[in-house]
Simulated assay, not measured.
Amino acid sequence: MRMRIIVYGVLSLLIFQSVFLEASKIKKRLNNQEAVFDSSPKFSLDYSPKKAKKVHWQISNTPLFDWISPILENVGDSSSLIVVPPEIAHDQLIRNQVYYFRYKTVSKKKNSAWSRPFRFSVGLPSPLEYHWKYNPDVDEATWHALLPYFLPSNHPLKNKLDAIFSSSRVTANLQTLQAAGFKNLEGWKWDKVIVAKHPHLPGYLIKACLDDQYALDDKYLIHRIFGAEAIRSAIEENGYEEYFKVPHKWIYPLPQSFTNEENGPKKHFILVVEDMDILDKEENRKMFRQIKSKKQLSALYHLISSQGLPDSIYIKNIPFAKDGKIAFVDTERYQLWPVEFSKLAPLLSRKMKKHWQKLVDKP
């Protein structure tokens, strides 16, 4: 018995030392003395370039790296200094806002773990800006109610959106949307709201009610923001970050211009959302069939049931992303009960189907 205690003690000490050393390595893998940059962020990496073939780095707006613009990720030749060119920083990063940088080395034998996220900003952190010119086509009460949920006016995306939507009445119908360069994502159609991407907006999607969609009211796009924030809060409060994520969403007020007589009343707003880089339909179906973690499935059940998410039992609304997390992409309806949990069960493996049913039956 005494020998067993000694062995356990030695093993515990070795494990502690291993964890401590690994944590120390991660902590030391960035040599930066600077966390606030004037224009071009520079990151000094603590490793020997000779020992790695490539360096893979990422920049995200969250320390969990749930969303990454494809422009802010790169795998390049081994180097101890990563410099983000000023034009990319200006084009992709909101000035005065906090971002996170991480990297890992890539070699023939194996890749290193990700470094600890390094917090930085371009300019001293300060509140977001919402300097939007009022559109008299919208009643003042509606404008001011939606204003706090607008895309920040200092967001790099604003100038790109302005350039696209100021050239013509892009949202008149599907043809005008496509003529402006948008690709309608028909493969992932959640409802009658149009979901589209544009080559000049990497890392983002838009959701729009078109002018010729008479039955749709663009003002109700705000409910998707409310739902996303409710789900995000629930994920954080329950510590479910390793399993789930939800995109940030903003309202973009369309420019005041262009008469529109043929396609019905003009819509004044669209929704801009982070692209969660989700899997296609078949891959998503496979991933749900391959779920093996009861803990993950229990977390999914708890999140859906506690938040009242009746649309989140359809896997097209909670697809797996390429980073392995489930993304809650359709967030319009929340705090609504009952939820038909039985609709998800047929898509799970036999073992997980039984576990799901136990969760549903539990009083």
Results as ranks from 00 to 15, higher is better:
109 K>I: 08
105 T>S: 08
74 N>R: 11
1 M>N: 12
314 Y>A: 01
269 F>R: 11
124 L>Y: 15
361 D>M: 11
161 L>I: 12
333 R>D: 13
262 E>T: 06
221 L>N: 12
275 D>I: 01
21 L>K: 00
273 V>P: 00
23 A>P: 03
229 E>N: 12
81 L>F: 04
287 M>S: 15
126 S>D: 11
289 R>C: 08
149 Y>C: 13
233 S>Q: 13
359 L>Q: 12
231 I>C: 04
173 N>G: 01
19 V>K: 11
103 Y>C: 00
66 D>Q: 09
56 H>G: 05
137 D>S: 15
160 K>D: 07
309 L>H: 05
106 V>H: 10
195 V>C: 11
142 T>Q: 13
42 K>G: 11
91 D>Y: 11
77 D>V: 06
68 I>Q: 06
333 R>N: 08
219 K>L: 15
346 P>S: 03
37 F>C: 15
90 H>M: 13
257 S>V: 02
81 L>V: 09
343 K>H: 06
65 F>E: 01
29 R>E: 12
248 H>P: 04
173 N>L: 06
270 I>C: 10
362 K>H: 15
350 R>A: 15
340 E>R: 00
328 F>T: 06
106 V>E: 07
65 F>N: 00
155 H>Y: 07
94 I>H: 08
12 S>T: 11
291 I>Y: 09
50 K>F: 09
30 L>W: 09
219 K>A: 14
105 T>Y: 05
267 K>C: 09
10 V>H: 07
130 Y>E: 06
302 H>T: 09
118 F>S: 02
300 L>N: 05
324 G>K: 00
194 I>N: 11
22 E>P: 00
73 E>K: 12
84 V>H: 10
18 S>L: 14
302 H>I: 01
247 P>W: 11
229 E>F: 05
361 D>H: 14
121 S>D: 10
206 I>H: 10
319 P>G: 03
236 E>W: 00
217 D>A: 14
237 E>A: 14
